[in-house]
Design a protein around this nucleic acid. Structure first.
Lengths: 209, 209
DNA sequence: TCATCATTAAATAAAAATATTGAATGTTAC
DNA sequence: GTAACATTCAATATTTTTATTTAATGATGA
């Protein structure tokens, strides 16, 4: 009994994982979004998503296998529409989780937590000075627009993509502390990997814990 | 404006995709499930999930980056617990989608659709006879337990894993029509690939469309 | 039927995720 | 401080995804 139970449970988890995996690609999410706007042909969708027709077709078929979309033929064209299930609810839940994570970062950026002393407010100048005293550079590896929207006081912005190119901007003799969008984001980890590979002394800044 | 908007939207979609990707692995889902039952150490979790400690640690860290779990240290051990966000809702939505897909198959299995004439009930014998007349073998490539739980009348069960081994059981001169769990399932597609590679005349049975 | 076109399939190459191993880190207890 | 232990990091090999290219399919309309 326990064997078949385990087996069933395993199968269930695999089904769930397959569904999630299908959603785990931004091209497919974009396709889903466009399809949600109304029935569309493969060609229209490939244009909208900036994909080759063949590649779009592949993604559409994966979406179809997962039940997220359905298709029908009309003359020469195949039209894709949203599937029947509780897809909207699933996407909404995903968005809610992402939003929740984002708000956690806002808390991090706006106040507390960044100070040793959680209650004492700290000025930008003061943090800068502390950073200089301890020979630390605070590095924001998010995109320029994210940086513009809000960042830690004194942080230097070099998007991860440009890190190797703009390495000269990172002082060679200071420890680098990289941060990105918070716990759920892998950017700063990659930045640390790159920086270490290039001989710098780098660490990752982690909120919460 | 439109550029930055697109950019933001792209970033958003990537965030969503990253979250979904994190859920797109059955080991991580299993870990999440166990963590949902209460705070646990890495070692306990690796045991429960049947993973090496290092591997479990990696998965846990990915779950943490995505905000699905949080961790704290207690003495020698690090304890993982569920994260704060609307994780339960997300998992519930995933399950709902999987359940919806499953029920679509049940419909397929229990009635209609399989007949040319949608209203006329058809006996097992009659379908078998039709299949013989048209020289078709209906092949169920799901697991034995799934087959036992319900299958199309007259279908032969050879789980995908065993297909190459048990090829002799597939009549050589008949067209093979393979099916699995429905539109969202890739098993029968793989079966068709295998059968064709081995020189058989095989097609995939698709519901809905 | 044949020519044409949109779509899908198949095969390959490129990129990413996963599991494994051995080493490094950080904590407790002595 | 040092030893023992749990966890994480880093590097690697293996296995999946993804994108691209080229060929096949399937429907339309002459």
């Amino acid at each position: 009994m326990s064997i078949s139970e385990t087996h069933l449970k395993g199968a269930r988890l695999n089904d769930l994982a397959d569904l999630a995996k299908t959603l785990g690609n931004s091209h497919r999410l974009l396709l889903l979004e466009h399809i949600g706007g109304g029935e569309k042909t493969v060609e229209a969708l490939s244009d909208l998503a900036g994909l080759s027709v063949a590649n779009a077709s592949q993604h559409l078929q994966q979406l179809k296998r997962s039940g997220f979309v359905q298709s029908r033929r009309e003359g020469k064209n195949v039209l894709y529409r949203l599937g029947g299930g509780p897809i909207a609810a699933l996407l909404a839940a995903l968005r809610a989780c992402a939003e929740h994570n984002r708000s956690e970062i806002r808390e991090l950026i706006s106040d507390s937590l960044w100070q040793q002393d959680k209650l004492e407010a700290i000025s930008r100048e003061e943090l800068l000075q502390r950073m200089q005293e301890t020979e630390i550079v605070l590095l924001d590896v998010r995109s320029e627009s994210e940086y513009a929207a809000g960042h830690l006081p004194g942080a230097v912005n070099i998007p991860l993509d440009e890190l190797e190119l703009r390495l000269a901007e990172v002082p060679r003799d200071q420890e680098v502390v990289a941060y990105c969008r918070g716990n759920y984001c892998a950017l700063s980890g990659k930045a640390v990997t790159i920086l270490r590979a290039l001989g710098r002394n780098a660490r990752q800044l982690r909120g919460g814990m």
